[in-house]
Design a protein around this nucleic acid. Structure first.
Lengths: 189, 189
DNA sequence: GTCTATAACGGGATAGAC
DNA sequence: GTCTATCCCGTTATAGAC
């Protein structure tokens, strides 16, 4: 029986992130984590002495890079606003696998441990909404309306993930992405 | 030390419901449940032999009545569509205490045990969305658009609860209720 | 028959010794 | 990195009290 090659820490964190998203904070048991990473229960504590809290921190740090590059960077880059929004939405679609995967932010926000990660959550939500707001202002929408539309977009995406899961169909998520695209740059009425 | 009067079963279920909403399914530990109800561990299993699963069932049953009366009934009653929507939104505002309380459906949908309650979740989401859809069709909106707007309303409410929790402010929820009212009966474009 | 107390089992998270 | 010990949790079984 050949020994599988040891995983890089980034790969370990990647797999743990999936477990948190699929099973929630308390649902991601050490048994699942051990199975998914090939590490022994105790070895896990060698990588993450702070336990599951530290794992969440690590996941936040690592995903921050992906989000910054694939979601926030297009919003800040030069180019047509509509094009940049479409780039963001493609990244969002990939991030949630077309509505089949949960959002870590949503899972943690509704979880019982949300206070522990409150500042991370606020930072991530605010960062996303603020980047969208700036893009809309750049497109000529006044500050207040831009901030509302930006928040609405994130609200819609988060809500669609829940409703998709509750109704057991990805359709609400797919449709939410279209509605977000339409609404963000809709003519000001 | 005066002994507190024994609780009615409906009151027990009410308090357990709060715990599930605030802490999630696995976060609502027996220790919390015992503290919140004043019952000992064994008494809890006397009332709910099936354990936490049966508690969730009981909560679903009990809240179904409140939801039917306060949220669904206005949608089905005679009267101006706009008025009936406002009645629903007032009930929603009360149900989530202005955005401070989680939705049990959302918590369970994102939890790791969502498969166990999948049929309950689907029933509740579909029931809500269908009642809204029928109201909109009654107001002259065609079936497809009505179904989309109805789903959008629920998506917005669920998403707003998450974003409100993530940003640590109830504002997104309050604003979502206004947007829902505007959008449901907006002129067809 | 209705409720409660006690103990115990299996599993999960974690700390410390090796 | 691993092994072991400890503590908490959900659950069950048994038995006792009103």
């Amino acid at each position: 029986m050949p020994t599988p090659p040891p995983l890089q820490k980034t790969e370990i964190i990647q797999r743990i992130a999936m477990l948190f998203r699929q099973h929630g904070y308390e649902g991601a048991s050490l048994a699942l984590i051990a199975a998914a990473t090939g590490l022994g229960r105790s070895s896990i504590y060698h990588y993450f002495p702070g336990g599951k809290d530290e794992m969440v921190e690590a996941v936040f740090e690592q995903t921050a890079g992906w989000v910054a590059e694939n979601i926030l960077a297009p919003l800040r880059a030069p180019g047509e606003p509509a094009t940049r929004i479409e780039q963001m939405l493609r990244a969002v679609d990939a991030l949630y696998d077309g509505g089949k995967l949960n959002c870590l932010l949503g899972v943690l926000a509704l979880g019982n441990s949300h206070e522990r990660f409150q500042q991370h959550l606020k930072q991530r939500f605010d960062g996303w909404i603020n980047a969208l707001t700036r893009l809309l202002m750049e497109a000529g929408i006044d500050k207040k309306l831009a901030a509302e539309r930006a928040e609405d977009a994130v609200v819609r995406i988060q809500g669609a993930l829940i409703v998709a899961r509750g109704r057991a169909t990805a359709a609400p998520f797919k449709r939410a992405l279209h509605r977000v695209k339409e609404e963000l740059l809709a003519p000001v009425g």
